[in-house]
């Protein structure tokens, strides 16, 4: 069974000054037990999609099911099985991480004993035991974010919606969150992750979806998406070639002291051979997710869409 199935989902925000079509007929499925990484620039519609899926926002059109239940008509059945960390969410300053997790679990209906056991496990998994009794007001931004992640990880929700969960975390803290996400997936929980860290999406996701201006441009495993791009190889050459020569194989980009271009396998082999003959420095590698994103979207992920993601 699919954990999530969206069919022709759309969302239009209306206000007195006009409208914004945040989602345009998006169809997407997320298999149970998988980690889907939804990537896109700021304003692409990632948060809007996640909020509709997590039943906090109504769609304008289309249909979405979570574990076979309609998110609009069968909201209560959906809510029994999900948990969400909203973007930019923050913990209560007067609690410590242990209390935060315990509160969230008892609020959701866990028994006190179960909440206690789960809280200790989540604290341990996210490396928070050392800070378990420290008030949130005294924790760093990264630790606060980890405490938020621990709250939902500790719940019994079968599907977790994580909206940019590692924003503001240092590399070590990010790894501990990644590890917790992987563990959750191993336990057959489904993870829906939005991120604009492409390395994060690449490291965690079993499936990736690319959203741009409310339109789903690609969806599938990392390999499936790589096959969709016209140029699956990234070639970087330093010296030995003129721009005109390289333009015969693709669109070269000047990177301060070397040329970079995306090409097909045959052209990559030919450039390699010529580089060897000319003694030029060269590197050839399959495209990274960042390269794939650049080819599919046509823009770097760090370039903001006009407007903000909350409105899209």
């Amino acid at each position: 069974m699919d954990a999530l199935r969206a069919t022709a989902l759309s969302k239009q925000y209306r206000w007195s000054g006009g409208t914004n079509q945040a989602l345009k007929s998006v169809s997407l499925t997320v298999p149970k037990g998988s980690i889907l990484g939804l990537i896109g620039r700021n304003g692409a519609g990632k948060t809007t999609f996640l909020r509709i899926a997590s039943t906090t926002l109504l769609p304008s059109g289309g249909k979405m099911d979570i574990f076979g239940h309609d998110v609009v008509q069968e909201t209560n059945l959906v809510r029994e099985r999900i948990a969400v960390i909203p973007q930019e969410s923050r913990p209560f300053y007067w609690m410590n991480p242990r209390e935060l997790i315990y509160y969230f679990l008892t609020l959701r209906g866990h028994t006190r004993e179960d909440a206690h056991t789960r809280a200790e496990q989540a604290l341990s998994e996210l490396g928070l035991l050392e800070y378990a009794d420290t008030l949130v007001s005294r924790l760093s931004g990264g630790l606060r974010r980890r405490a938020m992640v621990a709250m939902v990880m500790a719940s019994d929700a079968e599907m977790l919606f994580l909206d940019e969960p590692t924003t503001g975390l240092d590399p070590v803290a990010r790894r501990s969150v990644w590890e917790a996400i992987r563990k959750a997936a191993h336990a057959q929980r489904t993870i829906f992750l939005t991120t604009h860290y492409l390395d994060e999406a690449e490291a965690l996701s079993t499936r990736i979806a690319i959203l741009e201006r409310g339109t789903l441009l690609a969806e599938g495993s990392r390999e499936e998406i790589a096959q969709k791009v016209q140029h699956p190889y990234r070639v970087v050459v330093s010296g030995g070639f003129t721009q005109g020569e390289l333009e015969g194989y693709g669109e070269p980009t000047w990177l301060e002291d070397r040329w970079m271009l995306f090409t097909g396998e045959k052209d990559a082999r030919e450039i390699s051979r010529m580089a060897l003959e000319r003694g030029a420095r060269l590197s050839v590698a399959p495209v990274s997710l960042e390269d794939i994103f650049l080819q599919i979207v046509g823009k770097d992920i760090s370039r903001d869409e006009e407007g903000d993601d909350e409105g899209a």
Binding site: T55, A83, V84, L107
Partner: peptide, 8 residues
């Protein structure tokens, strides 16, 4: 939002 997206 976390409460809305929960059984509560």
């Amino acid at each position: 939002e976390m409460v809305v997206a929960s059984p509560v």
